[in-house]
């Protein structure tokens, strides 16, 4: 626990493990982002909302390319955590000692990085999921994620009309938007199930934006 790696300061570049270097190398070239880009839509289930105290229990993610989702290329990993919060268990339904295959946090992160590569990350409330992942990376002495990311809440708000007559809320929950876009809420509160709902939401919001203002300019969304 008190290893050198857990020191707040990240490891110097050359000390970083090979899998990180492989991951980071994919960002040496910047490529333009458009509708045909690789997207990874993800969701995490956590023990709670405290970035420092709470931990990731599950990461679910799927690849989206040309509006297609390949099921056997989806990602669902459960993480072994010593910290556990009984309250949040009522939401995500992951029990502490549930007999499912779980990885250590380090292995989970390793698998996740190799899965996402340099794709654009998409989530609902992206900041939360990415901060949780970055905090975990930090605990293992690794730098933060290098991927570009999009947030379906932000995109939805952007897709709305600008009019003083329309009441714009600050925030929109996944449930609320799933209802608005008529997406079935089956498997809500499983990481991969939520990722799937988010993916459909993402596609539908892009469609709505295209209807409203023509071809998408992704640059404006970051």
């Amino acid at each position: 626990m008190f290893s050198f790696f857990n020191n707040k300061k990240a490891q110097s570049l050359k000390d970083l493990p090979p899998f990180w270097k492989e991951y980071a190398a994919q960002f040496s070239q910047t490529k333009p982002i458009n509708e045909q880009s690789d997207f990874v839509v993800l969701d995490t289930e956590t023990t709670g909302f405290d970035y420092n105290k709470d931990r990731i229990l599950c990461i679910g993610a799927l690849h989206l390319k040309d509006s297609k989702i390949h099921i056997n290329n989806s990602f669902e990993i459960f993480v072994n955590q010593s910290h556990y919060n009984a309250e949040s268990a009522t939401i995500h339904g992951i029990l502490k000692n549930e007999p499912i295959v779980k990885l250590s946090e380090y292995e989970a992160l390793k698998a996740f990085l190799s899965y996402v590569g340099n794709s654009v990350l998409v989530a609902h409330h992206t900041k939360f999921d990415l901060t949780m992942i970055n905090k975990a990376l930090e605990r293992h002495g690794l730098p933060s994620l290098k991927n570009k990311s999009l947030d379906t809440v932000f995109l939805y708000k952007k897709s709305l009309l600008r009019s003083p007559l329309i009441e714009r809320k600050e925030d929109y929950s996944l449930d609320e938007l799933a209802d608005k876009f008529n997406i079935s809420k089956k498997d809500r509160h499983t990481a991969l199930g939520d990722a799937y709902i988010t993916a459909l939401l993402f596609l539908k919001i892009l469609k709505k934006m295209k209807e409203k203002s023509g071809p998408l300019v992704f640059k404006r969304f970051f």
Binding site: G60, L62, S74, E76, L192, Y196
Partner: peptide
């Protein structure tokens, strides 16, 4: 198996 394949099979 994963959550989505369940969902598809269920349909």
């Amino acid at each position: 198996k994963n959550t989505i394949s369940h969902r598809v099979a269920d349909f």
